[in-house]
Simulated assay, not measured.
Amino acid sequence: MTTAQVKQSTDNLLEIKGLKKYFEVGGGLFKQKQQVKAVDDLTFNVKKGETLGIVGESGCGKSTMGRALLQLQKPTSGEVFYEGQDIAQLSGKQLRKLRKDIQIIFQDPFASLNPRMTVGAMLTEIVATHEIVPKKERQSYVQNLLEEVGLKAEAYWKYPHEFSGGQRQRVSIARALAVQPKLIICDEAVSALDVSVQAQVLNLLQKLKRKHQLTYIFISHDLSVVKHISDRVGVMYLGKMVELADEDSIYEKPAHPYTQALFSAIPDITEDNKERIQLKGDVPSPLNVPSGCRFHTRCPLATEYCKQVDPALEEVKEDHLAACHYTA
């Protein structure tokens, strides 16, 4: 899909066009700097009120993309439009105001919470900075927020180390929710939790989405989790989007060979003889991205043409996009 092919719609909360994020590594005496192409020419949109799941193997650029959307890492190039406004053109003050609307939940809640502050102090500081409620109402507002995410009001006085991992992630969710955002980026938000706690947090996220009319970008490597929570799913490989479709369509009939291989690995107790597609070789280094289709080194369908021409992300059927010369 080229930049010109992005569907313009008033239903889109976020529109990403040609997003790239490269990192320079190496250099020094007699050594040439190299570029890690972490995110390479992403073009897609996020609809209001949906949960867009982003999946792919570790190192495919999912988390870098999430940070680039929020401008936590400045994109190398490309455009990110939030409600029609180009985020890259915003001043520091405007960007701080935008971050009230777009929040992020990180994978490791302990690393993202200040260990020297109580939960109440942390959340109250955020509420005060963005002037969410009057000063006299801040404590009750924060305590109500903690109860909404499944904690007791007394959690207001506790420090992060006094909570379990699942409870700390609930604090992180409360922190994101405190400024009344429209979009929350969940960056591997449940991957560090036990399976039983994962289910509780996922159910909480869905409950909050309905109550507050939120939009999620849900980044994960766990295909089963993404299937459970997503309305649409985007599959990334080596910094690029290789398939994008609604959840039912992509799980029932994935079009891209990489997506087919990924989904074949999902355990299914209803199919005793489910065939697993084994990919050959390892994921190439983002320092040395293959020419043409970057998946051709592992693809069972690859031809000489694939090695030379990079396929565009195009519609293979209604609202189902794939970047493959030989889509099923």
Rank of each mutant, 00 (worst) to 15 (best):
residue 3 T to H: 14
residue 4 A to C: 12
residue 4 A to R: 13
residue 5 Q to H: 14
residue 6 V to W: 08
residue 6 V to R: 10
residue 7 K to T: 13
residue 8 Q to F: 11
residue 8 Q to A: 12
residue 9 S to W: 04
residue 16 I to K: 02
residue 18 G to L: 07
residue 20 K to C: 14
residue 22 Y to T: 07
residue 24 E to T: 15
residue 26 G to K: 04
residue 29 L to K: 15
residue 30 F to R: 12
residue 32 Q to G: 12
residue 32 Q to A: 14
residue 34 Q to I: 11
residue 34 Q to A: 12
residue 40 D to I: 05
residue 43 T to D: 05
residue 44 F to T: 10
residue 46 V to I: 10
residue 47 K to Q: 13
residue 47 K to G: 09
residue 47 K to V: 11
residue 50 E to G: 03
residue 51 T to M: 01
residue 51 T to Y: 01
residue 51 T to E: 04
residue 57 E to N: 00
residue 63 S to G: 00
residue 65 M to R: 00
residue 76 T to E: 02
residue 80 V to Y: 06
residue 83 E to S: 09
residue 89 Q to W: 11
residue 99 R to M: 06
residue 101 D to K: 15
residue 103 Q to I: 08
residue 112 S to K: 05
residue 117 M to I: 11
residue 118 T to H: 10
residue 121 A to D: 15
residue 121 A to R: 14
residue 123 L to D: 07
residue 129 T to R: 15
residue 132 I to T: 08
residue 133 V to K: 07
residue 134 P to S: 09
residue 141 Y to G: 04
residue 146 L to F: 07
residue 146 L to W: 06
residue 155 A to M: 05
residue 158 K to G: 11
residue 160 P to D: 01
residue 162 E to Y: 04
residue 164 S to C: 00
residue 164 S to L: 01
residue 165 G to Y: 02
residue 169 Q to P: 02
residue 171 V to N: 02
residue 183 L to Q: 01
residue 192 A to P: 05
residue 193 L to K: 04
residue 196 S to Q: 09
residue 196 S to I: 07
residue 198 Q to N: 08
residue 208 L to R: 10
residue 211 K to C: 08
residue 213 Q to Y: 10
residue 216 Y to F: 10
residue 217 I to P: 08
residue 221 H to T: 06
residue 225 V to E: 11
residue 232 R to M: 03
residue 232 R to G: 02
residue 233 V to W: 09
residue 238 L to S: 05
residue 247 E to T: 15
residue 251 Y to C: 10
residue 252 E to W: 13
residue 256 H to Y: 02
residue 260 Q to K: 09
residue 261 A to G: 10
residue 273 N to P: 11
residue 279 L to Q: 06
residue 283 V to G: 10
residue 283 V to W: 07
residue 290 P to V: 06
residue 295 F to M: 06
residue 298 R to T: 03
residue 302 A to D: 03
residue 308 Q to T: 14
residue 308 Q to M: 14
residue 312 A to L: 13
residue 315 E to W: 09
residue 321 L to Y: 13
residue 324 C to N: 04
residue 325 H to Y: 12
residue 328 A to Q: 15
